[in-house]
Write a protein that binds this DNA or RNA. Structure first.
Lengths: 356, 356
DNA sequence: GCCACCCGAGAGAACGTTTTCAGCAGTGCC
DNA sequence: GGCACTGCTGAAAACGTTCTCTCGGGTGGC
């Protein structure tokens, strides 16, 4: 499979069967000029009430539908009333909530949203972004893979607004909406330390990934703040997409000098780790705090303690930043940081066990 | 907030700052004609190697990006290499998996995906669909709200391919990709009956909603097949979006002649019901089978028994149907039904209790 | 050596809009 | 009655692209 979107690749070989009614046809039926139809469609009050009426009924009779692409092509501002969203995976509950937050803001403006998944593959991210640029989106909200987003400079120079969400872009200065990753991680670790834990394991994504790096930093900072050395042998990184978090958890728990508590720094990792701990029968003896909330977390026994981030809020914040730019905001780039909250449900409050 | 997308509403008031390089500029720089640039960009082999080379470098130098909208406007087939997806809520794990399945198929063809949430509001669904039509999408995949989709006839007549997913459309005949809802429900109820249950409650969405109605039908059929009367006092319908499933569950469990088992017919309802059962301390005495799988379901105690439907597979099937049509398939409308599978994890295998 | 043909390239119309410009009727003013 | 102005409408150019035509030159056949 190619990673490229060949400049507007065709969807298929078939030709469209019928064509839509055009303004020209509406004009002919209403007995007015093309210009008048355009004015009516765009709500220009300068056109007489009787003519407007005639045009409206003619349009309805023909089933006329405005052609936004042609409109954007000619219009002075060139806006297409659509934006693009690129996240790691639209099926990841965190990102789908972000997407929904963006959509909610966009809908109020009559703006439609393209959505795409990069799967953390830089080439795919870039192919998606360029395909979106080719579609003439007014703006792009992107959760970048660890890499380089300078290829977007060209599109921004062409007037495309750009906002990063969840992670800042690299080699390009732009607005961003982020969670307080390091702060949340500090909160998690401080909570475990205050519960008496001294050997706290860390399970994270690749550290090059911004969020993962920040959460690791918060983990180290919190330990240092409490005068604890970071237990390097208890810090593990999983493959992208958390595929092997289950095995990494077993490694840690069954290895030498095992942790009494675990901090898992991403939702899919938390799920895998919880499964592994459960399968080892250690869910009541090994403390666990995860980053990002998960459905059903409150129903586990014990309940899953998490650092919750406001995913939909991140999406809305990113969209607000984007539309501010489209509204003409020209100041320096801004970064919005949303706070995280600790939700205690039991798993993070287990006391240290097995201090043999 | 208006439910309408005013024909291509503007994203904002700001004008685009710069403009993109055009084929004309590339042609001028390369010293060739506009036609030649177009040919090179579209990979027409009829152009000489040396000229093609010149054009390529000129395009790269100017940072040229193909304008798909203008291209689609002129092209004979009029295809824009983009499709639309409308579901109830992109943040619902079921629908986000469907969306991802669609995206995976579309990406292989270089087709981009618009995504929108209807929230089961017919006016919003229609506004979204019409906005997508205005954007000139080649096709539309839609999980319709209980209503009437005949307004789409006009767009299909204009060449837009149309496929329903999860639920068939109404008052319009089109391809559809559905799960075996009734069969899955029969499977769930038969499983409970074979476990000795006789009073099985049903918790579902509004019965006008296709999936909910089908699952209710399967529930009734399975009971009838085992010679059991349908306990009407144990059949409850929640508000849209499962907002009050928690209370409905309590009503049932605490009411007269309470069920010994519950069949919850949608993922959000299952989550709410599980929470309510848990809060009542009945998770080990009241059997539960849910429709649609849920993350962490295996970690509950007991694990959550579910009827799993292949959400990503539904999306892929719908997308396959759509692209078949775009490839010229003209036969009568087809419906693909995907099977469901029972996943036993404990909650559905609890014996009847409290037979006082 | 001539004709038919093909191949590569350019000129220009078209796609469905918006927008600028011009026109034309009516109105108020002197 | 002439003038400037206003309010409404139409004609035509432009947006960036594709596609049909045309044309020039080379090639092969006889």
């Amino acid at each position: 499979m190619s990673e490229t979107f060949p400049n507007g690749g065709r969807g298929g070989a078939g030709a469209r069967v019928g064509r839509r009614a055009t303004m020209k046809q509406v004009a002919a039926l209403a007995g007015v000029s093309l210009s008048t139809v355009s004015r009516v469609v765009n709500g220009d009050p300068a056109v007489g009430a009787d003519l407007a009426e005639r045009v409206q009924t003619a349009a309805a009779a023909l089933g006329y539908r405005h052609n936004v692409a042609a409109s954007a092509l000619r219009r002075a501002d060139g806006l297409s009333a659509s934006i693009g969203v690129i996240v790691e995976d639209v099926a990841n509950p965190f990102f789908s909530a972000v997407q929904r937050g963006i959509e909610d803001v966009a809908r109020r403006r009559g703006v439609l949203t393209f959505a795409g998944s990069s799967d953390e593959v830089p080439e795919r991210e870039r192919a998606l972004a360029e395909a979106l640029g080719s579609r003439g989106v007014d703006g792009l909200i992107i959760a970048p893979a660890a890499s380089d987003q300078s290829y977007l400079l060209r599109d921004r120079a062409a007037g495309m607004a750009l906002v990063f969400v969840d992670r800042p872009g690299r080699f390009i200065d732009a607005d961003a909406a982020l969670a307080d990753n390091a702060g949340g991680a500090r909160q998690a670790v401080a909570h475990l330390v205050s519960g008496g834990h001294r050997r706290i394991g860390f399970l994270g994504d690749r550290p090059e990934l911004y969020t993962s790096g920040e959460r690791l930093r918060g983990y180290r900072e919190a330990l240092a703040a409490h005068g604890l050395p970071a237990p390097e042998h208890l810090i593990r990184h999983t493959l992208p997409r958390a595929a092997d978090a289950y095995e990494r958890t077993r490694d840690l728990v069954l290895g030498p000098a095992p942790p009494t508590a675990l901090f898992t720094s991403q939702n899919l990792i938390t799920i895998q780790a919880a499964q592994a701990i459960h399968d080892l029968g250690r869910q009541r003896t090994l403390a666990l705090v995860g980053f990002d909330d998960i459905a059903l977390a409150g129903l586990l026994e014990p309940g899953l303690t998490v650092i919750s981030q406001n995913a939909a809020g991140l999406g809305r914040a990113a969209a607000d930043l984007l539309f501010d730019r489209l509204d003409g905001e020209v100041g320096p780039s801004r970064t919005v940081v949303l706070p995280t909250t600790l939700i205690t449900r039991g798993s993070g409050e287990l006391p240290p066990a097995g201090e043999s």
